[in-house]
Design a binder for these strands. Structure first.
Lengths: 349, 349
DNA sequence: CTGAAAGCGCTTACAG
DNA sequence: CTGAAAGCGCTTACAG
């Protein structure tokens, strides 16, 4: 194992000072073109690359972004990781990944902070207001991805966030279901304290209210496959009082619902019940599911995340919340027909 | 934004030297218990945490592992990320994640190396031998995850790797299919240059050879959903000469095959054709697929990865290759019956 | 057990 | 354009 080659070694070989070597590797620094060339060729000869750790220490910029994730089984998040990582790599940043399975992101965060990250992205997790304040004090921008911060004491958000227009997305689904003649619409919530779930539900309820319809039933699946299954079983337990449509807070649960409905309850989708999800994960497009859903625009969300991050790195910009439009993807799990006699019966009871 | 608090600030408040502060945060260092306590309480008061960057610079250990991934749509990899990250976090290490969509992992690697990672895990990617040598020279352990290195000039592996016993897994599937009376078994390869695909195919061929059967047909799906679909279409184009079983190099392609077979070719699985995958991704267990497959033991693979990594960090241990046993998971996509007359016909032609 | 000092590998004013 | 020097925030022999 060769000793690590440093700027000094290169300097010696190129017969310049160590400072010159540093400049040769700093874009925009003032070095004579031929000097730079001599240095680069010496570096190449020795296999030299600047030590990013040493650079970070002196510049107080690590060019590392901490990414906190909690649950990768929902395929939405792998897609996010992939896009975000690639975009950040192109910006010259790197991603330190943390998995915080528990909702206790705090312990993981103090860990992150020791690495002097330039910014933090938290997907599907929120941080305590204590920690949020700590980050603000330390000048480390945090952006919540697919979650919205609680309102702070001042009535403004203390942490930036990027989401889809979840309420609008929920409303779109509500209107679609109503327009197709559904009257017994059920909601399958994610986690009760997740802003995504609450906002989508609020949108659904907006649409129902506009049509003079009540929410027919409600279950909670905690964004989990097995729990979603249980909730669906409960929702459809009484054959005389079944929903004619189910809107799940995300695709992962919508697929669980589809599976449960077909396999365990022997119901036809969309003939007997319509199902809609949210996210548009890759599987939603698979023929077996062909799931009608709301697409979250990951590209735009990632762009917004970068913008928010970079405007706050260095600059003293206020936290802000961005929400990007989402679009209804109509596939095959919502019936196209007017209500059956079957449903009409219930309508008039 | 408060100025960052350093060991000096804590030292001042606790009325000790900066060295003492450092010792108070170094497990096993020699400090009087009461001094340590005074320092910790001062640190708590100031919100001090040691700067991991500075520590890395001086100790020449970053406690960062670089993880290179290329393709997260195959759900096997998110599962790997999740487990590996968590395990490494518990070991006191952190994960710098790199996505290298292209097969050109080299450019991404030089990037990683600047961050002075203590080790590198490459999943579903291989590195050039030039770069492998560079890592060896630099004393940075590399472990290939789910890929095996090319044999080096010395006839031994120059890079460590952990895989499943892929050939054995392939053989298990071959034997299962043969035992259920299949005679026209087709193979859907992943990438031709991927050791996983080659080894599983070799295992399948072992079993076929033992039964005196030829490989009936062969397609290549490059581990991609859309390409797998195309390959399946080609494999089943001629209705008079269709395979009676299809073994795909992974679940992701097996699911693509299942979808294509059912939706586009109108074939019944397993009645008309059996399908088997490899990995046992979460979706394989979903009722719509209920896919017979070979389970890769991610837990064991992750453990082996850590072992390999840690024995090479610091120590001058040779690279070695570990393969962990995998187990056949029989679900519903392989027929249980003896061959139909239909197949017998072909047997005798 | 504790402090003063050297040094990890860089960047960046400051002179020249 | 270039070099000498200071310093980023730590760890770790070395004395005491």
């Amino acid at each position: 194992m060769k000793a690590k080659v440093t700027a000094h070694d290169v300097a010696r070989l190129a017969e310049v000072s160590q400072s010159a070597v540093s400049r040769a590797f700093t874009p925009g620094a003032s070095v004579a073109p031929e000097t730079r060339e001599r240095i680069h060729s010496a570096a190449r000869k020795l296999g030299y690359r600047p030590n990013a750790i040493a650079r970070s220490l002196i510049t107080r910029r690590s060019r590392i972004i901490g990414l906190v994730m909690s649950y990768l089984e929902n395929q939405f998040y792998p897609v996010v990781i992939e896009r975000l990582c690639q975009a950040l790599q192109q910006d010259g940043y790197h991603v330190l990944l943390f998995i915080s399975e528990t909702e206790d992101a705090d312990s993981v965060l103090t860990d992150i902070l020791q690495y002097q990250v330039d910014g933090i992205v938290m997907a599907s997790t929120t941080l305590s207001s204590a920690l949020a304040n700590h980050c603000i004090d330390a000048g480390i921008p945090v952006v919540l991805f697919n979650r919205v911060a609680q309102l702070g004491a001042m009535g403004c958000y203390s942490t930036s966030s990027v989401t889809s227009e979840n309420r609008e997305g929920g409303r779109l689904v509500g209107e679609l279901l109503v327009s197709k003649g559904h009257r017994r619409i059920a909601w399958l919530a994610g986690a009760e304290n997740a802003s995504t779930s609450r906002d989508r539900e609020a949108g659904l309820c907006d649409a129902l209210a506009a049509a003079g319809l009540p929410l027919h039933a409600r279950g909670v699946g905690h964004y989990d496959f097995a729990e979603a299954r249980q909730a669906v079983l409960a929702l459809f337990r009484d054959p005389a009082n079944r929903p004619d449509a189910l809107f799940a807070a995300n695709d992962h649960m919508a697929i669980a619902a589809l599976e449960t409905l077909r396999t365990e309850l022997g119901m036809q989708v969309p003939h007997e019940v319509s199902v809609v999800g949210f996210d548009n994960v890759p599987q939603a497009a698979w023929p077996s599911f062909n799931l009608t859903t709301v697409q979250q625009d990951v590209e735009q969300m990632v762009d917004a995340t970068r913008t928010l991050l970079f405007e706050q790195i260095g600059g003293q910009v206020m936290a802000r919340s961005v929400s990007v439009p989402c679009v209804l993807i109509e596939r095959g799990t919502v019936r196209v027909h007017t209500p059956h006699a079957h449903n009409k019966t219930y309508e008039t009871t």
